[in-house]
Design a protein around this nucleic acid. Sequence first.
DNA 1: GAAGTGTGTCGAAGCGCTTCGACTGCTTCG
DNA 2: CGAAGCAGTCGAAGCGCTTCGACACACTTC
Lengths: 337, 337
Amino acid sequence: MVTLAEVAQHAGVSASTVSYVLSGKRSISASTRQRVEQSIRELGYHPNAGARALASSRSNIIALMIPLRTDMYVPVMMEIAIAVATTARTHGYDVLLLTGEEGPDAVRRVTGSGLADAMIVMDVELQDERLPLLRGTGQPSVLIGLPADTTGLTCVDLDWGATGALCLEHLAVLGHRDIAVIGEAPAVYERHTGFAERTLDGLRSRARELGLKVLHRPCEGGYDAMAATLARIFDERPGTTGFVVQNESAVEPLLALLRQQGRAVPEDVSVVAICPEQVAVQASVRLTSVAVPAQEMGRRAVEHLVAKLDGRGRDEVVLLAPELTVRASSGPAPSAP
Amino acid sequence: MVTLAEVAQHAGVSASTVSYVLSGKRSISASTRQRVEQSIRELGYHPNAGARALASSRSNIIALMIPLRTDMYVPVMMEIAIAVATTARTHGYDVLLLTGEEGPDAVRRVTGSGLADAMIVMDVELQDERLPLLRGTGQPSVLIGLPADTTGLTCVDLDWGATGALCLEHLAVLGHRDIAVIGEAPAVYERHTGFAERTLDGLRSRARELGLKVLHRPCEGGYDAMAATLARIFDERPGTTGFVVQNESAVEPLLALLRQQGRAVPEDVSVVAICPEQVAVQASVRLTSVAVPAQEMGRRAVEHLVAKLDGRGRDEVVLLAPELTVRASSGPAPSAP
DNA sequence: GAAGTGTGTCGAAGCGCTTCGACTGCTTCG
DNA sequence: CGAAGCAGTCGAAGCGCTTCGACACACTTC
């Protein structure tokens, strides 16, 4: 293993000079710099991470807490994680992967041990146990998701309320009056995950303003669950002509079942999905949808974190504006018989 | 920030004693141990990771390289990553997330800097650039996936050859003679990803033994691509009655298209899928399938790595035996007209 | 020409931990 | 009863780096 000292000797300078060449924190003459860089290359030197962390009390690592559960938005989570990792690298950081399993203890451990300089937390619940800890430590952190109380926190998220409203509006403009909302699995609502509730709120309040009727049904993914859910919906509200789906694994079943029942999309019923772009495009009917900007969220989270670590940036809630893309699954409501 | 020295002072012992309490590397009297543990708790002490790494030249971190691409098996990758992270924690390790982006350099960086003690590499290509590096370093590593040459490497993977053979056999036993294989996107084959090619080899060689005809077609996911692929298949081989699908995003389109064409599953054609359990169960027809044991793979990879780090364990190729679960998508071949 | 101002380099201290050898009392055994 | 062995503890060295102050030297500035 090559050390700084060996590089220094090889280049005929002192260790501190090599360090300054590496960090750029003091000016170094061009000739010395070149000599040192040459030695670094020749010897294949890599600074020891532990020593660096100890001496500088900076680990250059960002911790990322991902949910343990895989009952929703798996590809989204993955995309965020990848975006976080790659963005972090461009700023010189590595990413430590924590699963939610340890819960709040993970926050303590990472903060206390100096393992990471900062933290990104996903799958935030409205009253998340981790929040007090994050507020308490001096460590910068960014949430991907929005808790009930955001004071003293930095959050990045899609504006789910606006997303719900946008979907509703789109259907309203098309003349639909009776809307069914197919949501995530009941468990998602039970643990008060912010995005699910906010979407619903946005949807409902806009419906109230526009005088539309909204029926919300959580739904496990898959055909059987969707079939049951759909039956109940048409049972309660036979006049339903608009659907908003926020559950990737219910999208395709819904389309298949509608087809099976002889309800044409978009002639008889319109469907608007809230899902990753890929799902919307690959579905059997190209779906009018609001995409979840996963990459953007990951990137923004890291950038805010880096800003904080550099002393710039302050607590802030960043809500990304939803964008609705009209595709083939929505159209004018059938005129009443 | 609380240090070892402060704990020592608080407990009235020397720093080394506290260290030995923590590591258990020397015997400590029960009374001293208790006093120290008490102090640790009272002060909320967490050992500094950097200092530890420096002094012991062990970071207690495992690096996990995941693919940057998201053109296949995203949920599987995610499941593996989560399994790796949770298993690693039970052995006292944390996980550093690396994307394939940096390529081989990431291996050099992590190895050289002592950032991680060991490495798990996913998305292995048959002739992977990273292999020479992994063989060269003293660092233990485990591949999830199988390259062409495994000498000096430890690998964990599903036995894809056997998986292919198993699917083929199942269809053969049911009397199908003309089999179509719907594969991953062409790009996956082009970069010579081991699993895709091995599956195909296993399938084909068993087909040869049993005298069946096999037609392989790579396929991007989604309806349009699947429709084109399916048309070509029935065009070339109108007598096709068995399908093997290795591409999650082609599964549902295939089923829908078959239905649309009036071909009943499993009465007219049988479908066997190679996909995550969830996809098989949630599909519109419950699919006969071979599951990808993602969790198992992640767990095993970590356990092998930990064994190596402990000086136990040696290079070895672990192939998990595939299991085929019969569900509702496969049945006897229709007797020839 | 003395004082001030940069610029480039070095030496040494120290980050918080692990670990080795040494020491102290015991017990145990020939 | 002295030597040997062991459990339990301590002190000190050192892991590889960053960073602070000091210093040498070359310039400007009055």
